[in-house]
Design a protein around this nucleic acid. Structure first.
Lengths: 336, 336
DNA sequence: ATCGTTGTTTGCAACGATGTAAAGACCGGG
DNA sequence: CCCGGTCTTTACATCGTTGCAAACAACGAT
């Protein structure tokens, strides 16, 4: 059995509350009492029971992070940065995996873990604003990504349209004219896909190129195998592309693989740009040009937004805030 | 404020305890009472306070997973499998990142989060058995990997020596004779490195090849950049290898990159084998031959070992158990 | 009608920590 | 030597939940 305040109090010969005061750094404690208590604390190796403390003051010091897939590199990197940012501020992170399933996202947002956590950072895939409209009284929530309307909760995201436009423009400026978009999704949950497609089209039009529907290739998920499959179907089609804008890095890496298998050279025959700047992109052959969102900033901002809500439980809660995280284009070999 | 049992009880017109009974599926409740309570539960959207429940019955339903780096693909995949395995069994996972730092690993093992978690799965890098010897009374602990003596806590690991021998033998059987080992570490924390080096040497001797010290290349960490650096130093040296056994996949991927830059063909000029079978290995160019530990089995076993200890708090706790997880060799293009 | 039996519901205490308020210790000034 | 004030320590109630044991209701058997 672990030691409780009571045990320490008995050993030190003081009351439970005095020990509590010492543990919490209350100032009006005489030096002699403090020393006695500290000695007892050390001797018994006291560790506070966070469940009890959480019960008493309604705070557990734990925030939850809910991601679609922990093993997808982008999310793994986000998780890393969030855990780090939270630790820097003295908080612990509980990780949930939703697999992008609507029911799991709803459960998480509705607060399965409520009472065990003080706040939630959620990166939704399937969730819509309607699912969140009712939850005014839940735990503070910060959303990652532009997939949900920004007026239902605090949100941190890159400007997907602008980032996609930047990436596509980069290819056009290098003289490419048949730029394919890889990763198009028409489903309701494909909001990111829609925004990135929008940015892609915008760039084309700004450069006087008419978007060719044959060059907009769908992908069910955004994994490497989907990217490879998309390229194979593209190569079997009527229009051969001279560049690919892939909606994430995994698609791009799968595409690189399929291009290599088809005997096409990157970037000479086909230039490739991705999105996410996962670490792998710096080490692929060829190294991948990609949109680089400031993941550390995204994570730190998300944690800070949560902290702000936790610190100020004001009667009329402040309106949801929207933070646009910066991005850059990391130009590497795959775009020449 | 969230609803408590008390609120539900008031609405349903029964006692708090009866509501608790309904929530917990106690059988001796009349159908009429049950319906009344369930209606009230639904109307108020009751969610149990896990902190209070945890305080009451000494269980929180949360286990902690402490890993060196969440963004390293191998650990990200392990985290994914652990979260999944835990969820299947009705548990939640709290993730901690130790960065492989001894002090952080010690803290975690000593139970910073104690009382908030029921058990701990730890993948140590720097921790030694001595750090764990004293902790008989702590929360149940399962170690991942062979880095720590197996008699201090339950442990799940692949047989590193045998796996390394298999990988090296595979290269030797394809006729390679100058097989380099990439990732050697002499530091105290490099136990995995030591075991894999041992397996590598064993395979060489079994095939009548004398280990050449010039072909055992050190690497500070096991990241892609270290693999690339190791290959560059190797190519600058006196003995050119015709094969590489890299102690993990990231090293191997970095090596592929450096070999490509040096104009060497894989596998024609140099064959490459890795260790971990991260997803990326299946999509690299060329696809990577690698030792494939059964990560899902490792995760499930770790969770099960923990569950077993939690279920049976017997007076003399059962001796630490050691489980050897199976591995296979995934043969792909990089070894010909 | 009374008793025991089974089945259902309830009140109370406890888990470990902390906020509140009050009691106790100590000081100098009158 | 007593009083009022400050500083230190204490007892008690409380957070939300569940185990325990007792209270209560309903029933058939005597």
């Amino acid at each position: 059995m672990r030691t409780r305040l009571k045990d320490v109090a008995a050993l030190a010969g003081v009351s439970v509350k005095t020990v509590s005061n010492v543990v919490n750094g209350y100032e009006h404690v005489t030096t002699s009492t403090r020393t006695k208590v500290e000695r007892a604390l050390a001797e018994l190796g006291y560790v506070p029971n966070l469940a009890a403390r959480g019960l008493r003051n309604g705070r557990t010091g734990v925030i939850a992070l809910a991601l679609p897939e922990l093993h997808a590199p982008y999310f793994a990197e986000i998780a890393h940065h969030v855990v780090r940012a939270a630790a820097d501020r003295g908080w612990t992170v509980l990780v949930d995996e939703t697999e992008g399933r609507l029911d799991r996202e709803r459960q998480v947002a509705a607060g399965i873990r409520a009472h065990l956590i003080d706040g939630l950072i959620l990166s939704p895939l399937a969730l819509t604003a309607a699912d969140l409209d009712g939850r005014a009284d839940g735990v503070p929530l910060v959303l990652l990504g532009e997939r949900v309307r920004h007026d239902v909760a605090d949100r941190v995201a890159v400007d997907n349209v602008r980032a996609a436009r930047d990436a596509t423009a980069h290819l056009l400026e290098r003289g490419r004219r048949r730029v394919a978009a890889i990763g198009v999704q028409r489903s309701a949950s494909g909001v990111s896909a829609r925004l990135r497609l929008q940015g892609y089209r915008k760039a084309l039009r700004e450069h006087g190129v008419e978007p060719d529907p044959a060059l907009a290739v769908p992908a069910v998920a955004w994994h490497r195998s989907d990217g490879a499959a998309a390229v194979r179907s593209l190569l079997a089609g009527p229009v051969l592309p001279d560049a690919l804008f892939c909606f994430n890095d995994l698609l791009a890496l799968g595409a690189l693989r399929a291009l290599h298998e088809a005997g096409l050279r990157v970037p000479e025959d086909v230039a490739v740009v991705g999105f996410d700047d996962i670490e792998e992109a710096r080490f692929s052959t060829p190294a991948l040009t990609t949109v680089s969102p400031a993941k550390d900033r995204i994570a730190a901002t998300a944690v800070d937004l949560l902290m702000a809500r936790l610190a100020a439980p004001s009667a009329p809660p402040p309106l949801p805030r929207r933070v646009v995280a910066p991005h850059t284009l990391a130009v590497r070999e795959s775009s020449g």
